[in-house]
Amino acid sequence: MANIQVSTKINGDTYEFLCRPDETLLEVLRDRIGLTGSKEGCASGDCGACSVMLGDRVVSSCLVLGAEVEGQEVNTIEGMADGGNLHPLQRNFIKFAALQCGFCTPGFLVAAKALLDKNPDPTETEIRYWLAGNLCRCTGYDKIVRAVLHTAEEMRGQARG
């Protein structure tokens, strides 16, 4: 199984890496690039803990081959804060206690940001269905949904202001 050379952009920076043909983007991010913020909870696309942006789509990085991202742009949880400034979702997840163990949190944040980028004014139901692919076993989702609702409101306010 000869390794494949891949060139890609991750969080705005250019990376070149070698990977096995059957190696997933998640494995590449975690084991080759050292970006361990994306988590493996299932390797079957059922938990969302490995969510990243591939181009303008949120995807499960466990269901993307590393070789596929040649020439593409990948954005991970590590690229979500703007330098030292947390994204409003990150800030509000802390404020609203929307995490307990925190393992699913990166995936939720990436997926929630993708939602707000697309729909700045989602209903509770829209949030719940958009995030249905992100499993959280700790919180019962209540505080996560509240944090997303609040962030949307806050960001709309800033956009208007």
Binding site: T36, G37, L86, R91, F93, K95, L99
Partner: peptide
């Protein structure tokens, strides 16, 4: 108050079981 490990956990910096080499 905000939890002390909050920022680590929303930035992906927190190290869980498999996050070590």
């Amino acid at each position: 108050p905000n939890r002390p490990d909050g920022v680590d956990k929303v930035t992906g910096r927190a190290r869980f079981g498999a996050d070590i080499h």
